[in-house]
Write a protein that binds this DNA or RNA. Structure first.
Lengths: 191, 191
DNA sequence: CCGGGAATCTAGGCATTGACAAGTTGGGCC
DNA sequence: GGCCCAACTTGTCAATGCCTAGATTCCCGG
């Protein structure tokens, strides 16, 4: 009796990657299991490792995909508006909408941070982010390092992290974008 | 031949907790192993579970200890100065100096966030943090939720997280406190 | 002094996991 | 048609978390 599925999956790499994002969204990186992903994709327990080397290799691919998604999100937000506040809100929205990617990206101990693909994707995202920041710092005279950009990034990144971990006090409502806008406005629009 | 060590360890709970902090500092939460902690403490592989129930129970204790340490740090910083900038810098210093605790505290999926001990400790830290924030918001009229406090917390929390994950661009130097002070000053001291 | 219950710790086992090695299948290229 | 190689399977091993049963020691009341 031949199995229902063909011997070759066809696009197992993408299937495992998608399954990984699903599993990460459900349970977080701590409970991620290569064997579970293999079961979800309907392949043998060692098939995923063939495409990604090991667990860290899989998470490297997730991180690279995440950085590329973030770069796309930030550039799109920038082209839509000149207000950096909106770019910051887009950053928070990315974190909430792509929680799985976000949680992996900023945990370099889980993957291979020096991988060329992930390094290139991270650079794309950094360029997009600092490009958006430039509008804030353009009017000021400062050192090489755009401290205002670091501050803005820290603010939205910290807000996103705290929001995802349910560390923020209740009363901010349940709309992360609106809350992020209100909080970020305190820094970006000082009278 | 009797074993060198007595049957009862004496203070195994504290020993395992300390070993856990060491292991977390070395390798992070992902590679933490109860059996490794047992080996470090020189006890059988199941002894730690007796004191903490399971792995999540151990991390609950780590988180509680961390929140208490943070509360101590913040209250001490507040009594030393009236400038909230220093409290923010103290927050970053805590994250860098107690990386193991910090990384567990803000990952509630790793432990039991509703545990009474950890909830009480978290409340202590929150009180200390918002007490320090009050000096910033006192002059402003605002809603119940101190948005400026959330913004300040987000800023220092995000900076600490990005610093720990080596996500910040080079050129900030290697002193996290000095860098944090420079970055936070952009928000806290707007002309 | 001592007896028994309770707390602490040991020993063994089971299911799951990540990683590795070796074999099998099938598509594409000459 | 035949061959090569990537894709996938099967089997195995050490390590881990958690569970249960049992051994040892402490403590406290009499």
């Amino acid at each position: 009796m031949p199995p229902d599925r063909p011997y070759h999956h066809g696009d197992l790499r993408q299937a495992v990657l998608a399954a990984a994002v699903d599993a990460l969204t459900e349970s977080g990186p701590a409970r991620l299991s290569l064997r579970d992903l293999a079961r979800r994709a309907g392949v043998s327990h060692a098939a995923p490792a063939h495409h990604f080397g090991d667990k860290a290799g899989l998470l490297t691919a997730v991180a690279a995909e995440g950085y590329n998604l973030l770069a796309d999100t930030l550039t799109a937000a920038q082209q839509r508006t000149a207000d950096f506040l909106d770019v910051g809100v887009a950053y928070v929205r990315f974190a909430v909408d792509h929680r799985a990617h976000f949680e992996v990206m900023f945990r370099p101990d889980l993957y291979h941070p020096d991988d060329p693909a992930v390094a290139a994707a991270r650079q794309r995202a950094a360029d997009a982010l600092y490009g958006g920041v430039r509008s804030v710092t353009a009017t000021r005279r400062g050192p090489d390092i755009p401290l205002a950009g670091i501050a803005a990034w820290s603010l939205v990144h910290g807000f996103a992290t705290l929001w995802l971990n349910h560390a923020l006090p209740p009363g901010l409502g349940d709309d992360p974008q609106a809350a992020a806008r209100a909080v970020a406005a305190i820094m970006f629009r000082t009278p």
